[in-house]
Simulated scan of single mutants.
Amino acid sequence: MNTLKVILLLASLSGLLILAGYFVARGTGVVIALVFSALMNFGSYWYSDSIVLRMYSAREVPHAEAPVLHNSVEALAARAGLPKPRIYLISNDVPNAFATGRNEDHAAVAVTSGIQKILDRDELEGVLAHELSHIKHKDILISTMAATVASAVVLLSRWAVFFGNDEGGGMIPAIAMAVIAPVAATVIQMAISRSREYDADAGSARITGKPEALASALRKLSAASRANPMNVNPSTAHMFIVNPLSGDFLRTLFSTHPPIEKRIERLLAMKAAPKE
C-alpha cells in the first residue's frame, strides 16, 4: 500500500512540474521542465552522497576504530541480502544516523559520535537495520528524486511570474501557480518522506526480529533531539532517522518524519502480533 502511495505521490509531483513548465512557456516550457528535472536528477544521483557526507564533515572509519559498528553492519547487511555499506562517523554529540548513496553497491551509513553513548547494542542494531532498509528499498533514490523535482517545481513556479503574462496564459494564473505549486510540492515531498520512514521501521524489525529495540532507540533519539537540536541543513533533515532539527515537534503536513509516538506504536504492534 505504501509503495502505491509513493508512486502516486511521485506522479503528482511530476504533474506539478509539467504544469509549472506550462505556465512558463506552454509546450516549450513543459520540455524545459522535463529536461531541467532530468539534469538535476542526474547530478543528484551521482553526487548527492558525497555532497551530504562533506556537508557534515563525515569521515569513513576503519574497523579497528569502530569494531562494534562494523561487525553489526556486516551481520545485518548479510541478513538483509545487501553488500556491506561504507561506514562514516560524524563528530557530533547529538545522536542520529542516516544512509546515503545511489544504489546498494555505492551506499554508506553515517552515524554521529553521540549515538553509541545512549543506545545499547540491540537499539543500535535497530537503527542500523533501519538505514539498511532504506538502502534495500532504494528510498535514498526516491527521496532524492522527490526533493529534486520539488526544487524544480519551486524554481519554475517563480519563473512563471515573469513569463506567464506573455506565453503561460496570463499573470493571475501565473501568480497563483507561484504561490500554490511550491506549497503543494513541499507537502507531497514530505508525505513521501514520512511513508518511507514507516517502511524502513518495518524493514528494521524484519531484519533484526526486535521491533521493540528500534522503538526504544527512537524514544531515546527523539528525546535527545528535542533537548539539543542538531545544526543541520533543513534540505537534508529528511535523511536522518529522527528529525534532527527539533525531534518530532512538527506534526503537520510539512513534517519530514511521522510522529515518533506513531512509529513506536506501529513497532510495538509488530512485537505483539502473533508469529505465523
Results as ranks from 00 to 15, higher is better:
L4S: 08
I7T: 03
L8I: 06
L9F: 09
A11I: 13
A11C: 10
L13T: 02
S14V: 09
V24S: 01
A25C: 04
G29L: 08
V31C: 10
F36G: 09
S37F: 05
S37P: 08
A38V: 08
M40A: 15
M40I: 13
S48G: 05
S50I: 04
V52Q: 12
L53V: 03
M55S: 13
M55N: 12
R59G: 03
E60N: 02
E60P: 00
V61S: 04
A64N: 13
V68S: 06
L69V: 01
N71W: 01
E74Q: 10
E74L: 04
E74F: 00
A75L: 07
L76H: 05
L76S: 07
G81M: 09
L82Y: 02
K84N: 04
P85S: 02
Y88C: 04
L89G: 01
D93S: 15
P95Y: 04
N96Q: 06
A97S: 14
T100K: 03
T100D: 06
R102I: 07
E104S: 12
A108Y: 01
V111E: 00
T112A: 07
T112H: 06
K117H: 11
L119D: 04
L119K: 08
G126L: 10
G126Q: 05
L128D: 09
H130I: 07
E131R: 12
H134D: 11
I135Y: 08
K138D: 15
L141W: 10
I142C: 01
A146K: 01
A147R: 05
T148P: 00
T148Y: 00
S151K: 10
L155C: 05
L156E: 02
S157C: 01
R158N: 14
G164N: 07
E167I: 11
G170M: 11
M171W: 08
M171C: 02
I175L: 15
A176F: 14
A176P: 03
A176K: 13
V179L: 15
I180Q: 03
A184N: 03
V187G: 00
Q189C: 10
Q189P: 00
Q189N: 14
R196G: 02
D199Q: 15
D199A: 14
S204M: 05
R206P: 07
I207D: 08
K210H: 14
P211A: 13
A213T: 07
S216E: 13
A217N: 09
K220P: 10
K220E: 11
A227H: 06
H238T: 04
M239G: 05
F240N: 05
F240G: 05
V242P: 08
P244V: 03
S246R: 13
D248L: 11
T252Y: 01
P258L: 14
K262S: 11
K262N: 08
R263W: 00
R266I: 02
L267A: 03
L268V: 02
A269D: 12
K271H: 11
E276L: 11
